[in-house]
Amino acid sequence: SVVLPVGPYVASKTLYATASVEYSSCAASRGNLVFSWSLAEAGGRRAVVLTGSSNELPIPQGTMVGGKAYALSLSVGRDGVFSTAGASLTASASPLVALIAGGSSRVAAPDTPDLSVDASLSYDPDFCPPPDPMSASAACSDPGMAFSWQCATTDGSPCRNKGDSSLVLLPSSAAISVDVSAIAVPPGQEGLLLTVTASKGGHAAARSVSVAVIAGGDP
């Protein structure tokens, strides 16, 4: 039989399938067995995406696509006598990862006109590998990823502009510039909380950065 760990089976994580073999009571000998694995897309052309020939089949991350169904087949035996087993599985889409460059805290002076905040390293593990901070090459770009930003004061209230007290609206892009000098920070509040939500295909992930607004602060 085919033994699989308990799901869900996330496409961006390696999965291991194991063959469980029971010999017939009338088997003359119990020599070395021959294993033949096949992982194919379910339905349609049933395109084979992976094969193997040992008692365990590693299914590396990225082999399956989130949302697709697969058929796993196993043939095991020796000396022309083989038994077959199989299993069905569906790959789950991996959770999105939201990242903000520079960490979870920043400092800015009250008169800062252009605090830069960048979430462009956010990624979908099923589309892009994790960003490598030591790499000189450009990070993977995912055109399907959308971004939205919210600003709140430290008590959780939405940020408001000085003067007309209107709500602060931030651009819907990965990297934004925030005019801290235009935001009203109520007395007793220590700063701002900027939160990005990265979304794609019905999935979303959020990450926040706290901004301490301090006289003489350097963003």
Rank of each mutant, 00 (worst) to 15 (best):
S1T: 01
V2L: 06
L4G: 01
L4H: 07
P5N: 02
G7V: 04
Y9W: 08
T14F: 12
Y16P: 00
E22I: 03
A27P: 10
S29K: 05
S29A: 10
R30I: 04
G31I: 10
N32E: 09
V34E: 15
W37Y: 14
W37I: 07
S38N: 05
L39C: 10
L39F: 12
E41Y: 14
E41H: 14
A42Y: 03
G44I: 04
A47G: 14
V48S: 04
L50K: 14
S53E: 06
S54Y: 05
N55A: 12
P58M: 08
Q61G: 06
G62M: 07
T63M: 09
M64G: 06
G67L: 03
K68C: 05
A69W: 04
S73E: 13
L74V: 03
R78L: 14
R78H: 09
G80P: 05
T84S: 15
T84N: 15
T84K: 15
A87W: 07
S88H: 15
S88L: 10
T90K: 15
T90H: 10
S94Q: 13
L96V: 00
V97G: 10
G102A: 00
S104E: 12
A109M: 02
P110G: 01
P110F: 14
T112K: 03
D114V: 06
S120E: 14
S120W: 06
S122L: 02
P125Y: 11
C128D: 09
P131R: 03
P133L: 09
P133M: 12
C140I: 11
D142M: 11
P143G: 15
M145L: 15
M145F: 03
S148I: 03
W149K: 03
Q150S: 15
C151T: 03
D155I: 05
D155E: 01
G156E: 02
G156F: 02
C159Q: 08
R160F: 03
N161M: 13
K162I: 09
K162V: 06
S165Q: 13
S166Y: 14
L170H: 07
L170Q: 07
L170M: 06
L170K: 09
S173W: 05
A174K: 08
I176N: 07
P187C: 00
L193F: 06
S199L: 04
S199Q: 13
K200Y: 06
K200Q: 11
A205R: 04
A205L: 01
V209I: 05
V211Y: 00
A212W: 01
A212V: 00
